[in-house]
Design a protein around this nucleic acid. Structure first.
Length: 503
RNA sequence: GGCCCCAUCGUCUAGAGGCCUAGGACACCGGCUUUUCAUGCCGGCAACGCGGGUUCGAGUCCCGCUGGGGUCACCA
């Protein structure tokens, strides 16, 4: 794989965490670059200072890396096409803007935001559609500069050529946008900063970007970009507009869903990559899953490492229709990955989870974590492990009993379960060893002497020490808890028999 | 609403005119395994939106309709 001149970019705005849709775009760019021996540039689109959120960049970088998507050029990597934040490239934009102004391809526009809003409002009440009409005569450059000096709202608009624009797209084919739909748009805001359209086009050219893979929501921006490229004499990169990812109900996966859920007091849906990370998903599973949204290698292949995906990736297998994000399927992927990954890799991932999720699981206790991983085999996400082993991290007195569990395992049949506990207590107190193996021996012997099945004692024990019917295998559960806490909890359960039975 | 994009099981998709009585995966349903939960294993249900063409032959090509989506900012 040699450098063949292919250059792609991922260009996030520092407005918060990395959105799952953005991650898919980043992934496709990364895959494309890797597949063809090209380079992935990370560029920061920060031309809107109002929307800038403090530590977004650190978060975005971290989550990209968590997914395994390292970039070749950009922040923290450097490169010969920098700087890689648009806020540091103002001079370059100005230079090209001047060229446009000079050649007459752009002009100063004097309408204030209020005036424009009023015009739109009026258009709405009348015919409907508002299209910016090029002033005639055009304000002269001199007028523009003077008005700007006087502190008025002055923008620079690009003169849209008087013809239809054809966009050639690698996944959509040729898309023709009629002239009537196009208008002279702002390329420089009144604060002197470039708009997205202008900065993006200048940067793509200056950074040698050959292929632009981005969301389909950008499709209607593309004629603008193509027009600027033509009038500046830039090459037009190959565009590939990716389909959009929705919630299963067809709504957008927006950060607002999280706020809404929070208000309702229900679990917030995962929207940002960080949400998935914090909820115990593996990056291997997430990247695998989103790679299959809008792309497929064919031949019924699904479970793939990033390396395997890279080898198979191609733009002509990218599929133009929108996709819905099915969390159930993601969970299934995660389950499979969890079962396949090496213990070492799993341990590292679990530690990341423990840290990021603020979990009771102690991120620095490798030995315990590795043990938990072993006894929780079959888990779907790390959250499952957390839930299942939560009994370990709370005080004996804090154990809360699930009424259903109590009824089923303890109270049923005149408190048969309580009886079991009373009888097994002595054996436990006098146990010589307190390992899982020892527990197994002890419980097996107890079953034989009582002539009961394992479940008859395992379930009461489980409920007594965890309060629930869900825990790791009972021997490991007891071993992990230790003698004192186990006995303590059984005694406490026995003491509470009355209140538990009547509740 | 104008313009643009899209259209195979509930969902993600395979299918590039005959290999399709449409395949896989998830979900769902049923069964088995199991000390709980989960995992695992086996089986089942389930789709070419509609109407016209083209063709000996259409899920595959064309047109229309319908439906879904995107976009119409001094946001990106």
């Amino acid at each position: 794989m040699s450098d063949n001149g292919i250059r792609v970019r991922f260009a996030p705005s520092p407005t918060g965490y990395l959105h799952i849709g953005g991650a898919r775009t980043a992934l496709f760019n990364w895959l494309f670059a890797r597949r063809h021996g090209g380079r992935l540039v990370l560029r920061i689109e920060d031309t809107d200072r109002n929307r800038h959120i403090g530590d977004s960049l650190e978060k975005i970088f971290a989550d990209l890396r968590w997914l395994g998507l390292e970039w070749d050029e950009g922040p923290e990597h450097g490169g010969e096409f920098g700087p890689y934040a648009q806020s540091e490239r103002l001079k370059m934009y100005q230079q090209h803007l001047d060229a446009l102004l000079e050649s007459g391809s752009a002009y100063y526009a004097l309408e204030s935001p209020e005036q424009l809003a009023a015009m739109r409002e009026q258009a709405k009440t009348e015919k409907g559609e508002f299209k910016y009409q090029r002033p005639d005569p055009l304000p002269t450059p001199e007028q523009g500069r003077q008005a700007r000096e006087a502190g008025e709202h002055v923008t620079v608009r690009f003169k849209m050529p008087d013809r239809d624009i054809v966009v050639r797209d690698a996944v959509l084919g040729e898309v023709c946008i009629p002239r009537a739909e196009l208008e002279d748009f702002v390329i420089q805001k009144s604060d002197g900063w470039p708009t997205y359209h202008f900065a993006c086009v200048v940067d793509d050219e200056l950074m040698g970007i050959t292929h632009v893979l981005r969301g389909q929501e950008h499709l209607m921006n593309t004629p603008k970009h193509v027009a600027i490229q033509e009038s500046l004499g830039f090459r037009t990169p190959v565009y590939a507009h990716l389909s959009i990812i929705f919630n299963p109900d067809g709504s957008k996966m927006s950060k607002r869903d999280k706020e809404k859920a929070a208000k309702k007091g229900i679990a917030p849906p995962e929207i940002d990559v960080h949400d998935f990370r914090r909820n115990g998903y593996l990056p291997e599973a997430l990247s695998n899953f989103i790679s299959l949204l809008g792309w497929s290698p064919g031949e019924d292949r699904e479970q793939m490492t990033l390396e395997e995906t890279t080898a198979l990736f191609s733009l002509d297998r990218v599929n133009p229709s929108n996709a819905k994000f099915d969390r159930d399927k993601l969970v299934a992927f995660n389950t499979d990955w969890a079962a396949r990954l090496s213990p070492d890799r799993l341990l590292a991932a679990l530690k990341d989870f423990a840290t990021v999720a603020n979990s009771p699981l102690t991120a620095d206790d490798d030995q315990t974590l590795a043990y938990l991983l072993r006894i929780c085999k079959g888990f779907r996400t790390f959250r499952d492990i957390e839930t299942k082993t939560n009994f370990l991290f709370i005080k004996d007195e804090a154990i809360e009993f699930d009424p259903k569990a109590v009824k089923k395992a303890l109270a049923k049949n005149d408190g048969a379960g309580f009886g079991m506990l009373e009888r097994v207590l002595g054996a436990l107190q006098s146990a010589e060893d307190w390992t899982a193996t020892a527990m197994e021996g002890l419980v097996t012997r107890f079953c034989e002497s009582e002539d009961v099945k394992l479940g008859a004692i395992a379930q009461p024990l489980r409920v007594a020490v965890t309060g629930t019917m869900v825990s790791p295998p009972i021997y490991d559960t007891l071993a992990l808890l230790g003698r004192d806490r186990t006995i303590n909890r059984i005694k406490r359960t026995l003491t509470m028999r009355e209140s538990l039975t009547t509740q």
